[in-house]
C-alpha cells in the first residue's frame, strides 16, 4: 500500500510513540495512518512495547517535556537513547523491585499540588449525537477541574464500536469541538480502535478517515484493560 511512498524509519516512529515529534511531523504520520493498516499495526506494536516496559516500573515515567523543544535531529537521537535507557531501566527495575501484582495495579494516589498526574480514561461506545455531546461536556468539565486545582492530568477518550463516529472525519458531529479540545488541553488524547476500523471496512465498506491527532490502538477493549492495569480510573461515557 505504501510501496511508492517513503517508509518512516523505526527511530521516527519511536519518537512518534514517545510524543517527541513536532506537530508537522506528527501530522505526516497521522495523514498516513488512516490509510495504512501496516503502519497502524506497527505503531500499535511500538506502543504495546512501550507500555509493557513502563509497566515494569511502579510509577511509569512520563515522556520528558523538555525534549519537545530540541531540534529535530537531536530529538530522534535522544528518543532512541531514552528508549534504550527506558529498556535498561525497566529491566533493572524489574529485578530490583520484583513488584507484587498489588503494587503494579494500585491506582496512583493523587491530589491537588501532587506531581503525579491524574490518569483517567473515558470509554465511548455509543455513537448517538446527544450522547457524544454529553461525553465531551464531561471530558471538558474534568479537564477544567484539573486546571482549576493546578493538577496535571492525562485523559484518554477511547472510542470503539459506534463510538468511533466521534473521531471520524466527515462523520463526527463534533469534529471542530474535538479539534479545539485537543488544542486547549495538553494531556487529552482521543483514541480509536483498530478492530472497529477494520469492522467498518468489512461490514459497511467505509474506509475510516480519522480526525487529525487521533491515535489508533489495536483494540479499544485491550487498551482499556491495559490502562486500568496501569492505574487509570475508568469512566463509561
Amino acid at each position: 500500500m505504501n510501496n511508492q511512498e517513503q517508509n518512516f524509519s523505526d527511530e521516527f516512529l519511536n519518537a512518534f510513540v514517545d510524543d517527541q515529534l513536532t506537530p508537522e511531523e506528527k501530522a505526516q504520520v497521522y495523514a498516513r495512518l488512516s490509510g495504512d493498516e501496516t503502519l497502524s499495526r506497527q505503531i500499535c506494536e511500538l506502543r504495546k512495547t512501550r507500555d509493557l516496559v513502563q509497566l515494569a516500573y511502579k510509577q511509569p515515567p512520563m515522556p520528558a517535556r523538555g525534549l519537545a523543544t530540541l531540534s529535530a535531529g537531536r530529538k530522534i537521537g535522544l528518543g532512541v537513547a531514552a528508549g534504550l535507557m527506558l529498556l535498561v531501566g525497566g529491566i533493572t527495575g524489574w529485578f530490583l523491585h520484583q513488584p507484587s501484582a498489588n503494587q503494579v495495579i494500585s491506582v496512583a494516589q493523587n491530589g491537588p499540588g501532587d506531581d503525579t498526574p491524574a490518569k483517567v480514561l473515558f470509554h465511548v461506545s455509543d455513537g448517538h449525537t446527544e450522547h457524544l455531546k454529553g461525553v465531551l461536556d464531561d471530558v471538558e468539565s474534568l479537564m477544567q477541574y484539573y486546571r482549576r486545582s493546578h493538577q496535571t492530568a492525562r485523559v484518554e477518550v477511547i472510542t470503539n464500536g459506534e463510538g468511533l463516529g466521534l473521531v471520524l472525519a466527515g462523520i463526527s458531529p463534533y469534529a471542530e469541538r474535538v479539534r479545539q479540545m485537543q488544542k486547549e488541553y495538553h494531556g487529552l488524547t482521543f483514541v480509536a480502535c483498530q478492530n472497529t476500523i477494520d469492522r467498518f471496512q468489512e461490514e459497511l465498506g467505509i474506509t475510516a478517515k480519522l480526525l487529525p491527532g487521533v491515535v489508533v490502538i489495536d483494540s479499544g477493549v485491550a487498551q482499556i484493560m491495559r490502562r486500568q492495569h496501569q492505574g487509570w480510573a475508568y469512566i463509561q461515557g
Partner: peptide
C-alpha cells in the same frame, strides 16, 4: 466526574 476518578484512586 472528578469524584469518580478520585474515588477510584482511593
Amino acid at each position: 466526574v472528578a469524584e469518580l476518578a478520585i474515588l477510584q484512586s482511593q
